[in-house]
């Protein structure tokens, strides 16, 4: 009885501690979401209060108007465009390259693979300036090309991730397919691609939110507000209005995170699904 009581108490204590800590961790996020329903004076002068007194959508309406005559509809459209095309590009190219590296034994494979692994650790700063200069020479500044085109050349991170997954598929599948007359190309489209679904979805999800959140790329390459992505627009919007309209800034910040929140809800489930499918396959 005593032992049981001790354990229950210990459990209770554990849950109180972890839950309190979890609450503390998400507090900034909650403060932002609830703040988007408060008036600017409430945000500024009653910062100890978390919950809004009433649910008002005024901030969303005034925030959506954006700045300089451009509404957030434009910025969201821009972001969706860039993110979608770039994600499409990176997923297709990375899957191809991953298959090449993990299933075909061509000359120079090991050296090429080592080069790729080195680029994983290479600080991006070193490439920043020359890349900017090249894009400037190509007159790509103020277009989406610098944000989109490099995606079509694969990304070392995703290539490596998909490779891990392909290596989990039994080699006998390839062998059987070759006997049945498949070429290395049709093995990719008919056998490997359908089986690496979870890795593809993970790539899409991770790249989507990376691109969605990307700030430095748009900051460097986009200078006309008409072209701004959401992340850059929020910054410009805050610079223009933060002193006067906190509420609207909170509302637009919340809105900009909506796609990521959405992914968060599905991402977790998908990870578990991915692990269980590979468990069965392995």
């Amino acid at each position: 009885m005593n032992v049981k009581l001790k354990r229950t108490l210990g459990n209770l204590f554990y849950h109180i501690f972890v839950a309190a800590f979890a609450f503390l961790m998400v507090y900034p996020v909650l403060w932002m979401i609830f703040g988007s329903f408060k008036t600017s004076t409430q945000i500024l002068n009653e910062s100890h209060r978390l919950l809004p007194t009433e649910l008002k959508w005024d901030n969303y309406i005034s925030g959506w108007k954006g700045f300089g005559g451009i509404t957030f509809a434009t910025f969201f459209k821009n972001s969706i465009f860039v993110t979608t095309i770039a994600t499409l590009g990176v997923t297709i190219s990375s899957a191809m390259v991953a298959y090449g590296f993990s299933r075909i034994r061509f000359k120079g494979r090991n050296i090429a693979f080592a080069c790729m692994m080195v680029t994983l650790m290479l600080p991006g700063q070193i490439l920043l300036i020359p890349q900017y200069i090249v894009f400037q020479k190509l007159q790509w500044i103020n277009t989406y090309k610098p944000l989109i085109v490099p995606s079509f050349f694969g990304s070392a991170f995703f290539i490596f991730m998909i490779m891990q997954f392909i290596q989990g598929l039994p080699k006998e599948l390839d062998e059987a397919a070759i006997i049945d007359g498949c070429t290395r190309y049709s093995i990719f489209t008919r056998i490997v691609l359908p089986l690496i679904g979870p890795a593809i979805v993970t790539t899409v999800i991770i790249n989507f939110y990376w691109k969605w959140d990307d700030f430095m790329g748009p900051l460097l390459y986009l200078s006309r507000p008409q072209k701004y992505t959401v992340s850059l627009a929020i910054k410009a919007f805050a610079d223009a209005t933060a002193t006067t309209d906190y509420g609207a800034m909170f509302a637009m910040s919340t809105l900009s995170l909506l796609p990521v929140f959405f992914i968060f809800l599905f991402f977790n489930r998908y990870l578990i699904e991915g692990v269980s499918t590979t468990g069965i396959k392995g």
């Binding site: 961790m25 998400v26 929020i234």
Partner: peptide, 21 residues
């Protein structure tokens, strides 16, 4: 709990969170 603790990593790089911070 794990997914709650993971949330900040997911959104922490965004402009929105930096401004809120």
């Amino acid at each position: 709990y794990r997914s709650v603790f993971y949330l900040p990593s997911l959104i922490g790089g965004s402009v929105a969170v930096a401004l809120i911070w």
